[in-house]
Design a protein around this nucleic acid. Structure first.
Lengths: 229, 229
DNA sequence: TTTATTTTAATAGTAAAACTATTATTCTAA
DNA sequence: TTAGAATAATAGTTTTACTATTAAAATAAA
């Protein structure tokens, strides 16, 4: 595969109290919180349980994150940034905006678990993708969303949305709802996976970690039938 | 306006321990919980605070609902049932499936607050609509979703989805994703309102309680461009 | 009308979760 | 080697979620 650069995803420092990437304990907090939120769900996940898992204490985790909500935001911000990086990387040097859009949709819909090699040793990408599917909307459906938005908690998600919306505008500058359609598609990508697995009468799609062609086809159609020239 | 029948929305009795419609205290629990969840958000809402508001006790509320999650489910089930009733009522005797679909979309997108008269004296329909926008997804993004699905917690939502999906199939029987498109549209209807008000860079739409024509137009286009014959 | 019986609600808790003030330890650099 | 800074652990408090038990009110039977 040749030379591989080290990728570092930078997360807005308003989200944490101490940068978890800078210490061993911090990395263990991130790594184990992904496993534990995936296992228990966000509601049953507590700093106490996480502390037990990493043989540390609640108070030590509180020195990194103000509360478990901000830890979840951290994980999501990291995920959206990583997604945007991949879209940048894989659409580089591709002129055709239709091809660009299809690449972006594939990256968004595909479970990271399907990748053969992990880019980050302490991140369980399959578990993180399941967290994105089941927990991501909890980051913004709160009473503090406006304050957190001011602190940049949603910058990476908005940036990702803007990138895809710009592809749509480049494809068809007459379509007036590029951002609305992108956010609809982004949310639908995860919702439909969840529905397929838990409330299957809400969707015809059959989504598994390995079988992603159907959801990709659905999202392709959702986008291109809207923006057809 | 002539004769008006009394409408009673029936909620699956697995969701509550005691039917709140049957007692004065029960009705106060429903009425005040809508106001309080709207005001505080679901995370900061507690049975203790609700008990204070209605001059009762936590333990008394626990005799009606096992926990606050089930109370939220109750409110949402009530809402989806009421929505489906309205769609039934307003599409009755209309043959044209395109017209039927447009009526359904309008009812789904429109804030109930825009109605001039309330059908249920103890239900603040404007507040309930805001709860639907901000809190509804929390009813199913849980680890217990499969168990709750077996108990029929999502029956009314699935039934609403099926009704609209059947309209889509009647309009164009060749479209293969009627349910997926309907659930995408249903979720988008509330998401886009939330984004418009809190994360406006994610959407071009401008949604307010009184101004609903733009979201209706967006959803109309989302559906009909997909299913065009 | 009085007394059982049942229904309904309040009292008074416990257990766990969320969070914090303070102390102890480890690391770094003079 | 030791002072100062950085980091983590101890030991709490407060709040939330939930429940066992008791009390009161309503209804029905005698």
């Amino acid at each position: 595969m040749g030379v591989r650069a080290t990728i570092k995803i930078n997360v807005n420092d308003n989200i944490y109290l101490r940068d978890p990437e800078q210490t061993q304990l911090g990395k263990k907090i991130i790594s184990k919180s992904i496993d534990l939120i995936d296992e228990l769900g966000f509601e049953d996940f507590t700093f106490k349980k996480l502390a037990n898992q990493i043989s540390s204490t609640e108070a030590s985790i509180y020195r990194y994150f103000e509360n478990k909500h901000n830890l979840l935001v951290y994980l999501l911000v990291w995920y959206w940034s990583w997604l945007e990086y991949q879209i940048d990387y894989q659409t580089n040097n591709i002129e055709d905006t239709e091809k660009q859009l299809k690449i972006a949709i594939r990256i968004i819909a595909e479970s990271l678990s399907s990748h053969s090699e992990s880019h980050f040793p302490h991140i369980n990408e399959a578990a993180l993708h399941r967290i994105v599917v089941s927990e991501s909307s909890k980051t913004y459906y709160t009473k503090s969303v406006d304050d957190e938005n001011k602190f940049g908690f949603f910058h990476s998600y908005k940036s990702l949305c803007k990138k895809v919306a710009n592809m749509i505008k480049a494809y068809n500058s007459d379509y007036p709802y590029a951002h609305a359609l992108t956010s609809t598609m982004l949310e639908s990508a995860h919702q439909q996976i969840f529905f397929s697995q838990h409330l299957p009468s809400l969707t015809e799609l059959k989504c598994t970690d390995s079988e992603t062609s159907e959801i990709i086809h659905y999202l392709d159609q959702l986008i291109f039938r809207q923006i057809k020239k």
